[in-house]
Protein backbone atom coordinates (compact mmCIF):
# COMPACT_ATOMS: atom_id res chain seq x y z
CA UNK A 1 0.00 0.00 0.00
CA UNK A 2 1.44 3.31 -1.07
CA UNK A 3 0.97 5.13 2.19
CA UNK A 4 3.77 7.56 1.71
CA UNK A 5 2.15 10.76 0.38
CA UNK A 6 -0.73 10.28 2.80
CA UNK A 7 1.71 9.59 5.59
CA UNK A 8 3.72 12.67 4.67
CA UNK A 9 0.72 14.92 4.53
CA UNK A 10 -0.84 13.48 7.65
CA UNK A 11 2.27 13.84 9.74
CA UNK A 12 2.87 17.39 8.47
CA UNK A 13 -0.65 18.40 9.44
CA UNK A 14 -0.31 16.67 12.77
CA UNK A 15 2.92 18.51 13.50
CA UNK A 16 1.49 21.86 12.48
CA UNK A 17 -1.77 21.49 14.36
CA UNK A 18 -0.76 19.49 17.39
CA UNK A 19 2.28 21.59 18.34
CA UNK A 20 0.42 24.77 19.36
CA UNK A 21 -2.21 22.69 21.15
CA UNK A 22 0.47 20.96 23.18
CA UNK A 23 2.02 24.28 24.21
CA UNK A 24 -1.42 25.50 25.14
CA UNK A 25 -2.17 22.39 27.19
CA UNK A 26 1.04 22.76 29.16
CA UNK A 27 0.24 26.43 29.88
CA UNK A 28 -3.29 25.55 30.90
CA UNK A 29 -2.21 22.77 33.25
CA UNK A 30 0.45 24.93 34.85
CA UNK A 31 -2.24 27.50 35.50
CA UNK A 32 -4.61 24.89 36.90
CA UNK A 33 -1.92 23.67 39.26
CA UNK A 34 -1.62 27.23 40.55
CA UNK A 35 -5.34 27.27 41.33
CA UNK A 36 -6.33 29.52 38.46
CA UNK A 37 -8.37 29.00 35.30
CA UNK A 38 -5.58 29.85 32.87
CA UNK A 39 -5.73 30.46 29.11
CA UNK A 40 -7.60 27.90 27.07
CA UNK A 41 -5.45 25.16 25.49
CA UNK A 42 -6.29 26.50 22.03
CA UNK A 43 -5.22 30.05 22.93
CA UNK A 44 -1.89 29.58 21.11
CA UNK A 45 -3.79 29.10 17.83
CA UNK A 46 -5.39 32.50 18.27
CA UNK A 47 -2.05 34.08 19.12
CA UNK A 48 -0.31 32.66 16.06
CA UNK A 49 -3.24 33.57 13.81
CA UNK A 50 -3.15 37.11 15.09
CA UNK A 51 0.59 37.50 14.64
CA UNK A 52 0.28 36.29 11.07
CA UNK A 53 -2.15 39.10 10.33
CA UNK A 54 -0.20 41.86 12.05
CA UNK A 55 2.26 44.23 10.54
CA UNK A 56 5.97 44.05 11.29
CA UNK A 57 8.34 46.56 12.82
CA UNK A 58 11.95 45.76 11.99
CA UNK A 59 15.04 47.29 13.46
CA UNK A 60 17.09 49.36 11.05
CA UNK A 61 20.17 47.33 11.99
CA UNK A 62 18.68 44.02 10.89
CA UNK A 63 19.92 42.27 7.76
CA UNK A 64 18.69 39.39 5.59
CA UNK A 65 19.60 36.97 8.38
CA UNK A 66 16.85 38.45 10.53
CA UNK A 67 14.25 37.83 7.83
CA UNK A 68 15.58 34.42 6.88
CA UNK A 69 15.85 32.97 10.39
CA UNK A 70 12.14 32.47 11.17
CA UNK A 71 11.63 30.37 8.07
CA UNK A 72 14.73 28.30 8.79
CA UNK A 73 13.63 27.70 12.37
CA UNK A 74 10.17 26.70 11.19
CA UNK A 75 11.23 24.44 8.35
CA UNK A 76 14.05 22.66 10.18
CA UNK A 77 11.69 21.84 13.03
CA UNK A 78 9.10 20.56 10.57
CA UNK A 79 11.58 18.45 8.63
CA UNK A 80 13.05 17.00 11.79
CA UNK A 81 9.53 16.17 12.88
CA UNK A 82 8.84 14.33 9.68
CA UNK A 83 11.75 12.02 10.42
CA UNK A 84 10.47 10.95 13.80
CA UNK A 85 7.81 8.21 13.86
CA UNK A 86 4.57 9.60 15.29
CA UNK A 87 1.67 7.27 14.63
CA UNK A 88 3.39 4.66 12.55
CA UNK A 89 6.86 3.59 11.64
CA UNK A 90 8.54 4.24 9.26
CA UNK A 91 8.36 8.02 9.45
CA UNK A 92 7.48 9.82 6.19
CA UNK A 93 10.91 11.30 5.64
CA UNK A 94 14.17 9.42 5.49
CA UNK A 95 17.37 11.33 5.23
CA UNK A 96 20.87 9.95 5.20
CA UNK A 97 22.16 9.63 8.75
CA UNK A 98 18.79 9.15 10.42
CA UNK A 99 19.08 10.42 13.93
CA UNK A 100 22.16 12.48 13.09
CA UNK A 101 20.12 14.31 10.50
CA UNK A 102 17.46 15.10 13.09
CA UNK A 103 20.06 16.50 15.47
CA UNK A 104 21.67 18.37 12.61
CA UNK A 105 18.42 19.94 11.47
CA UNK A 106 17.60 21.08 14.99
CA UNK A 107 21.11 22.46 15.33
CA UNK A 108 20.70 24.38 12.09
CA UNK A 109 17.49 25.86 13.41
CA UNK A 110 19.16 26.83 16.64
CA UNK A 111 22.07 28.40 14.77
CA UNK A 112 19.77 30.68 12.82
CA UNK A 113 17.72 31.44 15.91
CA UNK A 114 20.87 32.64 17.64
CA UNK A 115 21.92 34.67 14.60
CA UNK A 116 18.47 36.19 14.50
CA UNK A 117 18.93 37.28 18.10
CA UNK A 118 22.29 38.87 17.35
CA UNK A 119 21.34 40.54 14.09
CA UNK A 120 19.29 43.54 15.27
CA UNK A 121 22.19 44.56 17.55
CA UNK A 122 20.12 44.61 20.72
CA UNK A 123 21.85 43.84 24.01
CA UNK A 124 19.16 41.43 25.18
CA UNK A 125 19.18 39.48 21.94
CA UNK A 126 22.93 39.16 22.05
CA UNK A 127 22.87 37.87 25.61
CA UNK A 128 20.09 35.44 24.76
CA UNK A 129 22.06 34.06 21.83
CA UNK A 130 25.21 33.63 23.87
CA UNK A 131 23.30 31.84 26.62
CA UNK A 132 21.51 29.61 24.14
CA UNK A 133 24.83 28.58 22.63
CA UNK A 134 26.35 27.88 26.05
CA UNK A 135 23.48 25.58 26.86
CA UNK A 136 23.37 23.83 23.54
CA UNK A 137 27.12 23.21 23.66
CA UNK A 138 26.44 20.63 26.35
CA UNK A 139 22.85 19.72 25.63
CA UNK A 140 23.49 18.62 22.07
CA UNK A 141 26.26 16.09 22.85
CA UNK A 142 24.11 14.75 25.68
CA UNK A 143 21.22 14.30 23.28
CA UNK A 144 23.41 12.62 20.71
CA UNK A 145 24.92 10.21 23.21
CA UNK A 146 21.50 9.31 24.52
CA UNK A 147 20.21 8.59 21.05
CA UNK A 148 23.35 6.69 20.08
CA UNK A 149 22.69 4.44 23.02
CA UNK A 150 19.37 3.31 21.64
CA UNK A 151 20.80 3.31 18.14
CA UNK A 152 23.55 0.89 19.08
CA UNK A 153 21.12 -1.41 20.82
CA UNK A 154 18.94 -1.38 17.72
CA UNK A 155 21.86 -1.57 15.35
CA UNK A 156 20.80 1.38 13.17
CA UNK A 157 20.61 5.18 13.17
CA UNK A 158 17.26 5.23 11.45
CA UNK A 159 14.74 6.38 14.04
CA UNK A 160 11.95 4.25 12.67
CA UNK A 161 14.09 1.15 12.87
CA UNK A 162 15.18 1.99 16.38
CA UNK A 163 11.57 2.36 17.41
CA UNK A 164 10.54 -0.91 15.83
CA UNK A 165 13.47 -2.82 17.22
CA UNK A 166 12.81 -1.58 20.74
CA UNK A 167 9.16 -2.41 20.31
CA UNK A 168 9.85 -5.97 19.28
CA UNK A 169 11.83 -6.74 22.42
CA UNK A 170 10.00 -5.02 25.26
CA UNK A 171 12.52 -6.13 27.91
CA UNK A 172 14.80 -3.55 26.34
CA UNK A 173 12.68 -0.83 27.95
CA UNK A 174 14.04 -1.78 31.35
CA UNK A 175 17.60 -2.04 30.14
CA UNK A 176 19.78 0.17 32.39
CA UNK A 177 21.21 1.84 29.34
CA UNK A 178 17.73 2.65 28.13
CA UNK A 179 16.63 4.11 31.45
CA UNK A 180 19.76 6.26 31.80
CA UNK A 181 19.39 7.49 28.25
CA UNK A 182 15.75 8.37 28.89
CA UNK A 183 16.69 10.36 31.99
CA UNK A 184 19.38 12.23 30.07
CA UNK A 185 16.95 13.00 27.26
CA UNK A 186 14.38 14.30 29.71
CA UNK A 187 16.83 16.87 31.06
CA UNK A 188 17.80 17.80 27.52
CA UNK A 189 14.10 18.21 26.71
CA UNK A 190 13.73 20.73 29.54
CA UNK A 191 16.79 22.63 28.32
CA UNK A 192 15.92 22.61 24.63
CA UNK A 193 12.32 23.72 25.15
CA UNK A 194 13.33 26.43 27.63
CA UNK A 195 11.36 25.17 30.62
CA UNK A 196 11.84 25.71 34.34
CA UNK A 197 14.41 24.95 35.87
CA UNK A 198 16.50 26.01 32.88
CA UNK A 199 14.50 28.97 31.58
CA UNK A 200 11.13 30.49 32.35
CA UNK A 201 8.94 30.60 29.23
CA UNK A 202 6.44 32.98 30.86
CA UNK A 203 8.90 35.54 32.15
CA UNK A 204 8.85 39.23 31.32
CA UNK A 205 12.31 39.83 32.76
CA UNK A 206 14.58 40.40 29.77
CA UNK A 207 17.79 39.98 31.70
CA UNK A 208 16.92 36.44 32.71
CA UNK A 209 15.61 35.27 29.35
CA UNK A 210 17.35 32.73 27.21
CA UNK A 211 15.02 31.62 24.45
CA UNK A 212 12.59 34.52 24.69
CA UNK A 213 15.38 37.08 24.53
CA UNK A 214 16.19 36.10 20.96
CA UNK A 215 12.58 36.72 19.99
CA UNK A 216 12.22 40.19 21.51
CA UNK A 217 12.86 41.99 18.23
CA UNK A 218 10.53 39.86 16.12
CA UNK A 219 7.00 40.89 15.30
CA UNK A 220 4.11 39.96 13.03
CA UNK A 221 4.62 37.13 10.57
CA UNK A 222 8.23 36.42 11.58
CA UNK A 223 7.23 36.10 15.21
CA UNK A 224 4.42 33.76 14.28
CA UNK A 225 6.82 31.42 12.49
CA UNK A 226 9.36 31.64 15.29
CA UNK A 227 6.77 30.71 17.92
CA UNK A 228 5.26 28.02 15.75
CA UNK A 229 8.69 26.63 14.97
CA UNK A 230 9.56 26.56 18.68
CA UNK A 231 6.39 24.68 19.54
CA UNK A 232 6.98 22.20 16.70
CA UNK A 233 10.51 21.61 17.99
CA UNK A 234 9.03 20.95 21.41
CA UNK A 235 6.61 18.45 19.92
CA UNK A 236 9.42 16.78 17.97
CA UNK A 237 11.59 16.33 21.04
CA UNK A 238 8.69 15.00 23.07
CA UNK A 239 7.73 12.63 20.28
CA UNK A 240 11.34 11.48 20.13
CA UNK A 241 11.23 10.80 23.82
CA UNK A 242 7.97 8.89 23.86
CA UNK A 243 8.15 7.06 20.56
CA UNK A 244 11.80 6.13 20.36
CA UNK A 245 12.30 5.29 24.01
CA UNK A 246 8.81 3.93 24.66
CA UNK A 247 7.41 2.80 21.32
CA UNK A 248 4.54 0.97 23.01
CA UNK A 249 1.59 0.87 20.70
CA UNK A 250 3.41 2.22 17.66
CA UNK A 251 1.90 0.84 14.48
CA UNK A 252 4.19 -0.80 11.93
CA UNK A 253 4.18 -0.37 8.14
CA UNK A 254 1.08 -1.65 6.30
CA UNK A 255 -0.91 -1.17 9.49
CA UNK A 256 -4.69 -1.52 9.56
CA UNK A 257 -6.88 1.41 10.44
CA UNK A 258 -7.57 -0.15 13.83
CA UNK A 259 -3.87 -0.43 14.59
CA UNK A 260 -3.40 3.18 13.52
CA UNK A 261 -6.21 4.20 15.83
CA UNK A 262 -4.61 2.38 18.76
CA UNK A 263 -1.28 3.93 17.88
CA UNK A 264 -2.79 7.41 17.82
CA UNK A 265 -4.45 6.89 21.19
CA UNK A 266 -1.26 5.50 22.71
CA UNK A 267 0.77 8.36 21.27
CA UNK A 268 -1.56 11.02 22.64
CA UNK A 269 -1.70 9.29 26.02
CA UNK A 270 2.09 9.12 26.26
CA UNK A 271 2.39 12.72 25.13
CA UNK A 272 -0.08 13.93 27.72
CA UNK A 273 1.62 11.89 30.44
CA UNK A 274 4.98 13.41 29.57
CA UNK A 275 3.44 16.88 29.53
CA UNK A 276 2.00 16.26 32.97
CA UNK A 277 5.45 15.33 34.28
CA UNK A 278 6.93 18.47 32.70
CA UNK A 279 4.19 20.60 34.28
CA UNK A 280 4.80 19.13 37.74
CA UNK A 281 8.58 19.61 37.42
CA UNK A 282 8.02 23.22 36.35
CA UNK A 283 5.62 23.98 39.17
CA UNK A 284 7.63 22.49 42.00
CA UNK A 285 11.04 23.90 41.14
CA UNK A 286 12.50 27.36 40.97
CA UNK A 287 14.56 28.44 37.98
CA UNK A 288 18.26 27.71 38.34
CA UNK A 289 20.86 30.40 38.37
CA UNK A 290 22.23 30.79 34.87
CA UNK A 291 25.79 29.72 35.59
CA UNK A 292 24.47 26.56 37.25
CA UNK A 293 22.65 25.39 34.14
CA UNK A 294 25.81 23.89 32.55
CA UNK A 295 26.11 21.83 35.75
CA UNK A 296 22.66 20.39 35.20
CA UNK A 297 23.39 19.64 31.58
CA UNK A 298 26.73 18.09 32.43
CA UNK A 299 24.80 15.72 34.65
CA UNK A 300 22.66 14.85 31.65
CA UNK A 301 25.80 14.34 29.60
CA UNK A 302 27.28 12.03 32.22
CA UNK A 303 24.05 10.05 32.37
CA UNK A 304 24.09 9.70 28.60
CA UNK A 305 27.74 8.66 28.60
CA UNK A 306 27.00 6.06 31.26
CA UNK A 307 24.06 4.87 29.18
CA UNK A 308 26.35 4.39 26.21
CA UNK A 309 28.88 2.51 28.29
CA UNK A 310 26.14 0.33 29.68
CA UNK A 311 25.16 -0.86 26.21
CA UNK A 312 28.61 -2.36 25.86
CA UNK A 313 28.73 -3.68 29.36
CA UNK A 314 25.35 -5.36 29.28
CA UNK A 315 25.45 -6.80 25.83
Amino acid sequence: MNLDPLNFLGQTLALLLLAPLLSGCIKNWKAKLQNRRGPRPWQVYFDIAKFLRKDMVISEHASWVFSFAPYVVFLTALLAGLMVPMINAPAPLRLFGGVLAVVGLLALGRFFLALGGLDPASAFGGMGSSREMTISAIAEPAMMLAIFTVAITAGSTDLSQIAQSTQSATWKLLNPAHVLAFAAMFVVLLAETGRIPVDNPATHLELTMIHEAMLLEYSGRYLAFMEWGASIKQLVLMTLLVNVFFPVGLAGPQASVAALGISLAAYLAKLLALSAVVVVVETTNAKMRLFRVPDLLSTAFVLAALALLSTFLFQ
Binding site: Q34, R36, P197, L205, T283, T284, A286
Partner: peptide, 13 residues
Protein backbone atom coordinates in the same frame (compact mmCIF):
# COMPACT_ATOMS: atom_id res chain seq x y z
CA UNK B 1 10.64 37.33 44.61
CA UNK B 2 9.19 33.87 44.14
CA UNK B 3 7.99 34.91 40.70
CA UNK B 4 11.42 36.18 39.71
CA UNK B 5 12.95 32.77 40.42
CA UNK B 6 9.93 31.15 38.77
CA UNK B 7 8.74 29.41 41.92
CA UNK B 8 5.10 29.35 40.95
CA UNK B 9 3.20 28.18 44.06
CA UNK B 10 4.27 31.06 46.31
CA UNK B 11 4.17 33.58 43.46
CA UNK B 12 0.53 32.79 42.69
CA UNK B 13 -0.59 32.52 46.29
Amino acid sequence: LAGDVAFLPTASA
